[in-house]
Design a protein around this nucleic acid. Structure first.
Lengths: 168, 168
DNA sequence: CAAGATAGTTGTGCTTCACAACAATTGGCG
DNA sequence: CGCCAATTGTTGTGAAGCACAACTATCTTG
């Protein structure tokens, strides 16, 4: 019923089959499709905006930087839990940040297995800059979206995240 | 102030440093963090539910299957536009589906560069099965979310997607 | 002190995805 | 008609994200 052609002789006008008018409701139930699209676009935009910014490329680095900035002494395994990644991933995310002098790593006194992470001055400045860019980019992304929808979206997504994590 | 320990002698109870009570509002503005978390969890769940189901592993295959099922004659490049992927990705997604007999590929009569994709009976059955599983899994995912929030989320995400695509 | 659990690291491989390059085909314009 | 640019699908190649296994060091428990 949809996107059919040829029979009615409109072969020539079909230039790319105009994907606009395709029945996207096919994917109605496919939440993951829309979520993926938004997620993909957001992180691509972010990578673009942060080009050259030490933590560019990879939402993992950004999240880690912000977490360490606001939670001095946080441990890698905690970051792993929060970001739904495993410990090796966090380890590989943090090492370059230490190498670049954004973060300092000290073994905990009370538990010498654990490492405590602290932001450096350079790292803090970077975190501030990143926060500004994120905010700006977020505004641009939502330019055509009503403010209340934006608030809704945040609230709902945060709720889903808490469910995923098993938080109250 | 957060995640501190040792001083008060509660070393034993610190099992994982209780990341629950961390101030997640740090990431308030970081929409991409929540979106990534939800996206990641959804596709992981989906992969799990679809284990063994031909189109398991990869939202790309699922989307392609459903699109071809509902839009006979759709072309790979159109699927690429819709799913925000590039043509090589779609090519590599579709070939195994053709090999497994889910999809048939015929070169268009009016434009011999283009391939038109059609669902086979086997593919249609698979699409139906996949739709059922998706719906089921979506219900489970939203079990603790108010119905209206779910509707909101769909509407807002669809709007953002349309913005991304430049659709009206 | 021995056994098991935990924190962080390193090794390795899988999956996703983009960019570049290519052949085949089409359309436009002299 | 004939050449050139654009488009469709494909293959080559490499980068990035991420998981699982395995290892060392440390801590807890019996």
């Amino acid at each position: 019923m949809v996107a059919r052609d040829g029979v009615d002789g409109r072969q020539r006008a079909r230039r790319g089959s105009e994907p606009q008018d395709l029945d996207l409701d096919v994917l109605e139930g496919l939440l993951s499709f829309y979520v993926r699209s938004v997620s993909y676009t957001l992180s691509k935009n972010l990578d673009e905006s942060l080009k050259g910014h030490a933590v560019a490329k990879g939402s993992g680095k950004i999240t880690a930087l912000l977490l360490i900035d606001r939670h001095p002494g946080i441990r890698p395994s905690t970051i792993a839990e929060i970001t739904l990644r495993d410990r090796p991933s966090i380890s590989r995310i943090i090492r370059p940040m230490v190498d670049e002098g954004l973060v300092e790593q000290r073994t905990s006194k009370s538990e010498r297995r654990a490492e405590e992470l602290f932001i450096t001055e350079k790292g803090h400045a970077e975190a501030e800059a990143v926060r500004a860019i994120i905010s700006e980019q977020s505004d641009a992304f939502f330019a055509d979206t009503p403010k209340e929808d934006r608030a809704h979206l945040f609230r709902i997504l945060r709720g889903l995240y808490r469910n995923i994590r098993g938080l109250p």
